[in-house]
């Protein structure tokens, strides 16, 4: 991979989300939040979207489910296509059938007085018949491993449990794409790990495309197929995880490169070359062992 230059994913036939030269300015803002973003998300991948605070990650996510421009207003140029629909021509609730958005703060996205009622909220809005609704709520609770919490009030649950409820809420609407905006930033490591496992399972078992906005790359990167790095409203790196994490640019922007990759880099600077770029600790151990045995 060539360091520094954005790499576009080759296969475009399977694109579930595609933006072309997307420029967006919030109403009342002087500077554009997105300055010409072109990305392609393939169906069925797990994408990590990262970059420093204020780089436009959250703004981009809002474009994917129509909150931008329909809720936020502002000025939008370029194109966003999600599951074959142009976002500007759709309503947010139409898009909600295709794209689910899970927010950072679990507390502010659960508003019902019981978990199952919260999970049903979207389905109620879509006027799904009651029998079908009950089935889908149960299914969503099962997939996220929180069946036993169904009658509990959400605000009495732990942060990790709440976040799984939030995932179930979105899952019940059976979206093609699920976007999670820093879902683990309030959670402890074990809670975070569980969230990543749930997400991974949804992707593997149901083929849901996952877009994960994350700073916590040490825990998340092992699940990623594709990493997009943004900085100052632009996509600066875009490609498979190994290449992106290993690039000099990622480090300069201040991406929290996984320690496994960092170790690889430091070893290389000292003249020791591992046969591949590790992203997880398991990979690093394996690659190290190779070198140690070879000698």
């Amino acid at each position: 991979m060539i360091e520094g230059s954005p790499i576009t994913v080759a296969n475009e036939t399977l694109a579930i989300i595609e933006t072309r030269k997307l420029v967006y300015t919030y109403s009342g803002a002087k500077k554009a939040a997105l300055k010409g973003v072109s990305v392609t998300i393939e169906s069925g991948e797990i994408v990590i979207l990262t970059g420093p605070s204020g780089c436009g990650k959250t703004t981009l996510c809002r474009c994917f489910n129509g909150l931008i421009p329909h809720f936020y207003g502002g000025k939008i140029e370029g194109e966003v296509v999600v599951a074959g629909h142009k976002v500007v021509d759709q309503t947010i609730y139409e898009l909600a059938r295709h794209v689910g958005l899970v927010f950072q703060n679990p507390e502010n996205q659960l508003f019902a007085l019981s978990v199952e009622k919260d999970v049903a909220f979207g389905l109620e809005n879509l006027a799904v018949p009651r029998d079908e609704m009950i089935k889908r709520v149960d299914w969503a609770l099962q997939m996220t491993g929180i069946e036993d919490l169904s009658e509990r009030p959400p605000h009495e649950l732990s942060g990790g449990q709440q976040q799984r409820v939030a995932i179930a809420c979105v899952l019940a609407m059976q979206p093609d794409v699920m976007i999670l905006d820093e879902p683990t930033s309030f959670l402890d490591p074990v809670g975070a790990q569980k969230i990543f496992e749930v997400i991974n399972e949804l992707n593997k078992e149901l083929g849901i495309t996952i877009i994960l906005v994350e700073h916590r790359l040490d825990l998340a990167s092992k699940y990623a197929d594709h990493v997009v790095v943004m900085d100052e409203g632009k996509v600066v790196l875009d490609g498979e995880p190994r290449g992106v994490f290993n690039s000099e640019k990622a480090r300069l922007i201040g991406v929290g490169v996984p320690k496994a990759t960092r170790l690889y880099q430091i070893l290389r600077e000292n003249g020791t070359h591992l046969s591949g770029v590790p992203v997880t600790s398991e990979e690093a151990s394996k690659l190290l062992l190779e070198v140690l045995k070879r000698d």
Partner: peptide, 17 residues
């Protein structure tokens, strides 16, 4: 934002769990 994202106002006749 969360309500909008979960299809608030999609249908005149909401159903109920």
């Amino acid at each position: 934002e969360a309500m909008e994202s979960r299809a608030w106002g999609a249908s005149e006749k909401r159903t109920n769990l």
